[in-house]
Nucleic acid binder design. Structure first.
Length: 586
RNA sequence: GCGCCCGUAGCUCAGCUGGAUAGAGCAUCCGCCUUCUAAGCGGAUGGCCGGAGGUUCGAGUCCUCCCGGGCGCGCCA
């Protein structure tokens, strides 16, 4: 891409003038204002300051050594020492022509190819998938898709909650309170009902709690009846998950739930104990601070009443049972042994930050060589709040089911399609509504910075105007339609000319697609891509307003058709990275 | 108490790890469809970036303190 070529030439020039400069600090970015150029760099100002040099003079020295003449007009030194690059029309035009032939336009395969394991979605067995699962599922899927498009190897793993103390209550409920007719009608609702009923009974009556605990012990001991019921609950839940994932278009390479790691848990704790990483604490096994960092940065320390206290990570309960920390450590070990990843991404709620800090640190202590080879990232996101600013629930206090959100989204989209396109048959309208409705839900979740809490609003989530997926899908449809009507194919169109300001603005924005994808991958923030695509849609819309395509004379007509073609492809590829589909007509 | 996060237009939020004049959507107001899809485009209104200091060529972004809010803090996940 032009950007990376310019950046590496600038790096050479800077190092020629300032040999001890940090090469990674030499960065070229899209210009903040089109009037200033297409790309800009502020690197020389940062270099001049500590060296006591005049920034503008240093900039002039760098420019004298800089050879970007094949792509740019004369480089300008502006303001306190900015370097402004303006692409030549011929460079833009040949980049566009190259993109027509490329498998993915404006994207080149990422340089060091990484192997990235992504842990996301992770719903719980016997519970409905609810609105809270949207963020992890949609974010994780978007990151997987983006990393794959960039050429990285991705392993997606759905770490479902299929083990744990809740199964004691579920088993007891299954045996004593199950309504078979209700189970047949809506399995998850019935499982949820018996769980809540037993949970309430446990609070009221210690004997019930004891009975639930006994069921759990029998399950853990390998009791055939309980294992059979447990497997049935997983099967019922998995078919619910599959239905939702099918609607969302989300797939996983693996679904290795918590129970998969049971055979290793005892060994994990024993090995950690043998290596002196974990030790007995009040009857439990725990990982303590090694005292190698300041207390405030130590995940195993906490301050209380003015003094720092130990805050260990428990890897085995005093009753001998294991907990999620144990499972997470076994999982981490398994993933590294199995896939040798360069990175592992955990896409979860921000409230688990402390937990993951402890798990990562404990693993680092336990297996330093494995930890050194793999970067661990907690890709966390904020909470979904109700309009009152409190955690989002329905009026009756229940969580909002994901399936119902998708139903409502598709229904609302269908109403719009009926109004806009009464000429289409209902089956076609329904299909458009499906793509638009599901896309709207996903986009609304991907658009905000993932770390913000966000306020749930049906109207906002399902809005079809403004910076929303329907708008992006609509702009794709327009561009694709023009290309179809023009009878243009990539084989036919060679020459692209960018003459008008609108053509040039659209073209220069297209060039930065790969740059944005790299930023999304680097920071695990798909919202960068959302904003890029929204801007692209705006530029393309302004282009249509100003530049007739089909009514232009050749060779302008073919040139503009090629621009439409590239716009459509980038919109489609970008939306695909977000897990959002397009329709050829809307 | 300690830690993490947040506070930007009336509302909901961006702001690319310190760059040039702080941007969108919604809402309000004014224009644009006999011309390739108006789910659109153009324009207007709207800001002490919670407050006070500091760091430097340059701060919404970094540091300190204060105010206000959310979350977390041993055997749940």
């Amino acid at each position: 891409m032009l950007h990376s070529r310019i950046e590496s030439r600038l790096r050479e020039a800077v190092l020629a003038v300032v040999p001890d400069a940090d090469p990674s600090a030499v960065q070229v970015r899209p210009a903040s204002d089109a009037k200033l150029g297409d790309y800009q760099s502020s690197v020389v100002m940062g270099l001049a300051k500590p060296r006591g040099l005049n920034p503008r003079a240093l900039a002039a020295d760098v420019v004298a050594r800089l050879d970007v003449g094949e792509w740019c007009e004369a480089v300008e030194v502006a303001g306190p020492g900015f370097l402004n690059f303006r692409l030549s029309a011929s460079a833009i035009e040949s980049a566009l022509a190259g993109a027509v032939a490329a498998p993915v336009p404006f994207v080149e395969p990422a340089r060091p190819r990484r192997t990235v394991v992504i842990d996301f979605s992770s719903p719980n067995v016997a519970k409905p998938m609810h609105i809270g699962h949207v963020r992890s599922t949609v974010l994780g899927d978007a990151l997987a898709r983006t990393l794959r498009l960039l050429g990285h190897e991705v392993v997606t793993d759905n770490h479902i909650g299929d083990w744990g103390t809740q199964f004691g209550m579920l088993l007891l409920g299954w045996k004593t309170r199950l309504d078979p007719a209700a189970l047949a009608r809506d399995p998850i609702a019935e499982l949820e009902r018996i769980y809540k009923a037993v949970n309430a009974a446990c609070d009221a009556d210690p004997a019930v709690r004891g009975a639930a605990k006994a069921e759990l012990v029998r399950l853990q001991g390998g009791d055939a009846d309980n294992l059979g019921i447990w497997r049935e609950m997983i099967r019922l839940s998995q078919s619910q998950f599959d239905a939702i994932y099918g609607r969302l278009g989300v797939t996983f390479d693996h679904t290795l739930g918590e129970s998969f790691y049971n055979p290793w848990l005892a060994q994990v704790v024993a090995d950690m104990a043998a290596r002196g990483i974990a030790r007995d604490s009040e009857g439990a096994m725990a990982v303590f601070s090694r005292g190698d960092v300041a207390p405030k940065d130590d995940p195993f320390k906490i301050q209380r009443d003015g003094a720092w206290h130990d805050m260990p990570l428990l890897v085995q309960k005093s009753d001998g049972g294991f907990n999620y920390a144990t499972t997470d450590l076994a999982t981490l070990d398994y993933r590294i042994r199995t896939w040798s990843p360069t990175d592992i991404l955990y896409v979860t709620d921000g409230r688990q930050q402390g937990h993951f800090r402890q798990v990562f640190a404990a693993f680092q202590a336990w297996k330093p060589e494995a930890a050194a080879a793999t970067r661990l990232h907690h890709v966390w996101f904020g909470s979904i709040l109700g309009e009152d600013g409190k955690p989002f629930k329905t009026r009756s206090g229940d969580t909002v089911r994901l399936g119902e959100v998708l139903d409502e989204a598709e229904e609302r989209a269908w109403a719009v399609v009926r109004e806009k396109r009464p000429d289409l048959p209902e089956a076609v309208q329904r299909e458009i509504a499906r793509v638009v409705g599901v896309g709207a839900v996903k986009y609304q979740d991907l658009l905000p910075n993932r770390q913000s809490d966000y306020v749930f609003s049906w109207d906002k989530m399902l809005a079809l105007q403004g910076n929303t997926s329907p708008y992006l899908q609509y702009q794709y449809t327009r561009a694709a339609k023009v290309v179809r009507d023009g009878g243009w194919t990539p084989a036919a169109g060679a020459g692209i000319r960018v003459g008008t300001p609108e053509e040039r603005a659209l073209a220069r924005h297209l060039l930065n697609f790969g740059l944005v994808l790299a930023a999304v991958a680097e920071e695990a923030r798909p919202n960068y891509l959302c904003n890029y695509l929204y801007e692209l849609a705006g530029w393309s819309s302004r282009f249509y307003e100003a530049c007739p395509v089909l009514r232009s004379e050749e060779p302008l007509r073919s040139s503009r058709l090629a621009l439409c073609h590239l716009t459509a492809r980038v919109l489609k590829a970008g939306l695909e990275c977000l897990g959002i589909g397009v329709s050829e007509q809307m």
